[in-house]
Amino acid sequence: MTKAIQSSVQVGELATGQALTVPIYSFMGSENSAPSVYIQANVHGAEVQGNAVIYQLMTLLEGYQVLGDITLAPLANPLGINQKSGEFTLGRFDPITGVNWNREYFDHNVDIQNWYAEHQHLTNSELFCAYRSMLVETCQARLTHSFGISTGHRLAVNLQAMAHQADIVLDLHTGPKSCKHLYCPEYDIDAARFFSIPYTLIIPNSFGGAMDEATFCPWWQLTEYATSQGREFSVPVSAFTLELASQERIDLADALEDAKGILAYLSHRGVIAEKVNPASMERFGCYLKDYKKFHAPKAGLIEYCASVGEPLTAGKPLVNILRIDLYGSEQAYQAISLPMDCVPILHFASASVLQGTELYKVMTNVFPLQPS
């Protein structure tokens, strides 16, 4: 039986001087050539389901032969997790700066032309090792910046430094009221068929601030530049964001299904010795440019009519807006629909909204993902 080794990593300090730490669980692989894995959860305070998935995954891994090193970081943002107001967890934004915790990662902006010119004599494996070392060392240098860095950026870069040491990176999130969906880079779309997730957002191979992009973008840039110089290899690192339904929710049975989907992908990549088949299910995709946000045209009380994860025909009600202050007029109640077919993916958690509030995110131009 494979057992996880527990440790912790310091990601900052509290005002009273105590160390701010994240628990780390590690499965040591038996083969150096197998891909290594980093999985984190709960960067946003209310998005707790990823912790349940990590628990179920660790339980499953005890019964498998682990070939590649697996590092898991549940409870990855202790500041966000403990940012409570009454019964709600507010930990989506750094309370000091107002920045989204998942947009604090470091954009390396590697001078790829000069770096490659200095290292092009290396074999592929040596090249990848040197590039990985450079990324990790750059993160470490960032943490000791002479002018200092913000609390949120320090947390993010500490997590990023761990992620850069892996070949596969999974960042586990949830939405407010959401169905499961996967963020997958264009170059790695085939991976979507392994996870137990029905909808996939296909994102550009570029940096937008999130952990998955912070991880795979430097490797995409290296691969593209090497290709331009007549040297071809596949992108060495894969990174995905898994959105595991709604926030403020723990469902261990559902977490087990998502853990099995992760296990199927790890099996496909050779991280474990055993064969694990992906769930038999329909999967659909949408390019990020076709992922639309619907904002409240006016303030009011909202009835969310469209179920997340269920196709919505053009003209069918998306929301009903109630304005009790306008009772007796035609403006007291208004049904709102969209002019195109779509799949609602997530919606705002509260029924009382200001004008301009982002009420829904919907996929348009949805297409089936064909199994390979």
Rank of each mutant, 00 (worst) to 15 (best):
D94M: 01
I96H: 11
G98C: 08
G98S: 08
V99Y: 02
W101A: 02
W101F: 10
N102I: 09
N102C: 07
R103D: 02
E104W: 06
Y105D: 00
H108E: 03
N109A: 10
V110W: 02
D111C: 07
D111Y: 09
I112M: 13
N114A: 12
N114H: 15
W115S: 04
Y116I: 13
Y116H: 07
H119P: 07
Q120N: 10
Q120F: 11
H121N: 09
H121P: 05
L122G: 06
L122I: 08
L122P: 01
T123W: 00
N124H: 14
N124P: 15
S125F: 14
E126K: 14
L127Q: 06
L127Y: 01
F128D: 07
F128K: 13
C129K: 13
C129G: 14
Y131E: 03
S133L: 11
M134T: 09
L135R: 10
V136I: 15
V136L: 10
E137R: 08
E137M: 12
T138M: 10
C139N: 07
C139F: 03
A141V: 07
A141T: 09
T144Y: 02
T144K: 15
S146A: 11
S146F: 05
S146E: 15
S146R: 11
G148M: 03
G148E: 04
S150N: 06
S150G: 11
T151W: 05
T151P: 01
R154S: 13
R154T: 15
R154F: 09
A156S: 14
V157C: 06
N158F: 12
N158M: 13
L159Q: 01
L159D: 00
Q160H: 08
Q160W: 03
Q160A: 08
A161D: 04
A161M: 06
M162N: 11
A163T: 06
A163D: 01
A163L: 10
Q165D: 07
Q165S: 12
A166P: 13
D167R: 02
D167H: 06
I168W: 00
V169Q: 04
L170F: 15
D171W: 00
D171F: 00
H173T: 05
T174F: 00
G175I: 09
K180F: 10
L182T: 10
C184R: 01
P185T: 10
E186M: 12
Y187C: 12
Y187G: 12
Y187R: 07
D188K: 06
D188Q: 15
D188Y: 02
I189L: 14
D190H: 12
A191Y: 09
A192V: 09
A192M: 03
R193S: 13
R193M: 13
F194R: 03
F194V: 12
F194Q: 01
F195H: 03
F195N: 01
S196L: 00
I197G: 02
P198H: 05
Y199R: 09
Y199G: 00
T200K: 01
L201F: 02
L201M: 12
I202R: 01
I203G: 00
I203Y: 01
P204V: 09
N205A: 04
